[in-house]
């Protein structure tokens, strides 16, 4: 609020009304997706037939709840596995990239920095098909030349992890580099002067300082991977992550509100992770400006 600027009352109230309307627009679909998880009907649609928890715990046909829907549970497990591997890989490469660009000079650094950002402006579908084509090309070559079939280069979880990491590494690198940039290097020099080894300085001085960024970047990476669809769609094999399983189900006529139960779970889960990532990083900025995750 800027005290000396006082617009008319009518303007202020209509502005507020617009903002309110916007936030209603923002939550309407999420509310709808969540609320119908409790509708005692075989379809996620009107009319409202009363409250039930069957879509979470039901175990008899046709009301198979989330806890007994094996395909959805398996998808959830696959997504957890993929997201964990993607976040670990992205954190590792993100950390080395941050040190590379903040602490070192090398020829063509400007070009390399551009290349590091570029994955953010490549459509996710492209990342998916390009990795699919390269991996299949190598797999065919190996098979024809050596007579050995490299399964990990065919569509499946290893390729899904590679495809997602290809752009999530950019996000983690930028987040960690931004934190490292603010680090006061005299602290490290002081520790060296006091006789600490390189490893010791890194573990006791530098690492604690960038830890909020590491946690934040890890959460972002996990969420972006968990929710990724566009890149995953082209690389998926027989083990489908949750988003792909849900999408297949959504296209089918007569899908049950168990999808709403999963949706509610995802809304609550990602909301909670988002809150954690904000509070972990609050100390490094004065205002709670959230970070934009990337979905592709």
């Amino acid at each position: 609020m800027i005290p000396s600027v006082r617009p008319s009352r009518l303007f202020t109230w209509s502005y507020r009304a617009c903002v309110l309307a916007f936030f209603l627009y923002l939550i309407a679909p999420l509310t709808a997706a969540g609320v119908f998880a409790f509708n005692d009907s075989l379809f996620a649609s009107m009319p409202w037939k009363g409250f039930t928890l069957d879509w979470f715990v039901g175990d008899t046909e046709p009301k198979i709840g989330l806890l007994h829907d094996n395909r959805l549970l398996k998808g959830l497990g696959v997504s957890f596995l993929v997201a964990t591997m993607v976040s670990l890989a992205s954190l590792l490469v993100g950390l080395t990239n941050a040190f590379l660009f903040e602490r070192h000079w090398f020829p063509l650094k400007g070009l390399c920095y551009m290349l590091m950002i570029v994955p953010l402006v490549i459509p996710g579908v492209l990342l998916g098909i390009s990795i699919l084509v390269l991996a299949s090309g190598i797999a065919n070559y190996v098979e024809n030349t050596f007579g050995y079939e490299p399964d990990f280069l065919r569509p499946g979880l290893p390729l899904v992890v590679l495809g997602q990491a290809s752009f999530i590494i950019t996000i983690t690198s930028l987040v960690i580099a931004a934190r490292l940039r603010k680090f006061d290097r005299t602290l490290e020099e002081a520790a060296f002067n006091l006789g600490a080894s390189r490893t010791r300085v890194f573990l006791t001085i530098t690492l604690p300082y960038i830890r909020p960024a590491l946690i934040g970047a890890g959460l972002v990476a996990f969420l972006v991977s968990f929710e990724n669809f566009n890149t995953t769609l082209f690389l998926v094999g027989s083990d489908a992550p949750l988003t792909v399983t849900m999408y297949d189900r959504m296209l089918k006529v007569g899908s049950t509100p168990v999808l709403n139960a999963v949706s509610l779970l995802l809304i609550v889960g990602s909301g909670a992770l988002a809150l954690v990532s904000v509070f972990v990083q609050l100390e490094k900025r004065r205002s709670p400006a959230p970070r934009a995750p990337r979905e592709r």
Partner: peptide, 25 residues
């Protein structure tokens, strides 16, 4: 702060869930 958070949470929810919400509406 509240409005920032109100923006933040839907931002993190998967496209799939959001599109599904619109389908139900």
């Amino acid at each position: 702060g509240a409005l920032f958070l109100a923006c933040l949470i839907p931002l993190w929810v998967s496209d799939l869930v959001r599109a599904y919400g619109w389908m139900i509406l």
